[in-house]
Each structure stands twice: as C-alpha cells, then as structure tokens.
Amino acid sequence: MSNTQGRATRDAYGEAILELGKDDSRIYVIDCDIGRSCKTVEFARQLPQQHINVGIAEQNACGVAAGLATCGKIPFVTTYAVFGSMRMLEQIRQEVCYPHLNVKIACSHGGLTPANDGASHQGIEDMGLLRTLANMTVVAPADFASTKALVKAAAAYDGPVYLRFTRDAVPFIYDDQDEFEIGKAVLHSEGTDLTIISTGAVLDLCRRAAALLEERSISVRLVDMHTIKPIDRAAVLSAIATTKGIITVEDHTIINGLGSAVAEIVSEIGTVRMRRIGVQDQFGESAPYERLLEKNGITVDGIVKAAQELLG
C-alpha cells in the first residue's frame, strides 16, 4: 500500500487548514507540541495571530478551544488520534459536545499507521469513543483529496467534529473536483451480490478486493463511509435491500467503530449477513504497517475470504 503513489492525509490537513485560515480569520489552530508531525507548521508561520501552542497539555487545549469557540472562533485542536480521543475525551464531552460548540478535533496518526511507533501511538479506539458522544460528528477520509474536501466541510459545519488522518502515505483515489458532504457516503459501484463498506484509508484495499471479486463474477457494491457518525443510514439500508451480505472494513478496533455502527442498523432490519474486518480487539506493536494489517486480517485476501464465506 505504502509503495503505491500517494500522500499522507495529514499533509492534506496541513494544506486545507492553511487555505481555510487564510480565507477566514476565525479559523484557529491549537497545537500540543506536535505541530510538525500534524502539519500545522506553515499555518503557525503564516498565521501566528490564529495559532496557539499550549504545549504538551491536551486537556487544556480542548478547553482553550471551547473558550475560543464561545467567542466566535473556529478552533481546530491538532494532535494524534490517541491523545485527541482519550487524553481529552472527557474535556470534549463536557466543554465541546454538551454545549455543542464549534470545535474541531483534528487528529493525525489514526489507526495502525504510526506503525513503527508501536501501540502507544496507534489510535485504534478513537472513532468508537468519539461516536458515543452526543452531538459529535466523526469523519475519517480515505485519501488526500477527500481529506482536503472534508476538512473544509467540517469548517463550514457549525458544531463538534472529530477528524482522523493517516501518518503514512495512502494512495490517491479521488481528485480535486470530487465533492463530499459530511454524513453522505460515496457510492463507488452498484453491485448486487455483496456490499463492502469502508471508512478511512482502507478504501484502497477494498477497491482492490472488489476488483478481484468482480473477476470471480461477484458483483460488489462499494461504499466509502467517510462519516461514521452521523452514519449514512440510507446507504446502509440500500446495501441491505440490494445485496446479500455486508463486509465492513476499517483500520480501527472492530468494537464500536464502523462495523458496529453498520451492525446496529443491520440488526434492526435483520435480513442480511455481515462480517466486520478491523483490528481484532488487540493492541498493535512496532512493525511494518502491512504486517500489522495482515495480523488483523485487514487485507485484500481477508476481504475476499470473508466475501466467499458470507456468500457461501
């Protein structure tokens, strides 16, 4: 995956936030001493009046952002997924979600992508945790272009948003002309046998798996569910209505992420079988990204196998 042509989505965040900040002085970045890794250095250099670095103090960063939001600013708290979802989780709940303030939590290093950093830095529970908070929107874009578009959509939306980016390069899938709407899934193909629903950068794996399945005459409906909350219910309902099975794929624990969100809807309708592909309720370790994915079955093969099982 990483040897395919592409760029890390954290780079897309860096570009998008700079463009946004130049256009609108209400856009603020709150850094926690990892601006270099989260790609906000240019923002800090060019827009110092809209930049705050609170140091290694994530809980405070969240509160400062909430205070700024009450004064009409649009702050993006910028950190890694682990810290943005866990160190400041209760601050997000109390000071951002409960009062529905216009704060964005923008996190690099989502999923297993900080592969060599090991388990401490791999944010594999983030989306599930944020998804349980009322008033929160949770977005994991698949590639560079969709990240830029969705960061801008998040800025335009008045309310709390959690955004998740990758540390490492991921293949280009979309182009600058493609349009994205928070809460609206992107339908890549209209299959009739099987639906694959993806969130985040694993979309590339899903596309490759879908191509293989099509070769084996399995017609695949492929959906990019970049927003897992609010989930595009209509997209899931169409999958239930038009195909015989659903596979969800995410670089996130299978507990409470995309798979769970889809299963919640499926269990209410109850007519389609499912497989959840994701991190198998275990911590990562320092290893090449592909190895970590392999250990959890988040691979083209894994998807193909699940498809065959599912369709019997």
């Binding site: 509160g63 909430a66 205070g67 009450t70 601050q91 109390q94 000071e95």
Partner: peptide, 17 residues
C-alpha cells in the same frame, strides 16, 4: 458563559476567552 461541572476544566475555557 460556559457549561461546567467537571472540575478542572473551566479555567482552560476562560483562557480561550
């Protein structure tokens, strides 16, 4: 001016304001 209740957090919001 801000919702509070969980101790330790309000001062950060005051700093933001």
């Amino acid at each position: 001016d801000i919702s509070t209740g969980s101790l330790g957090q309000g001062l950060s919001t005051a700093v933001g304001m």
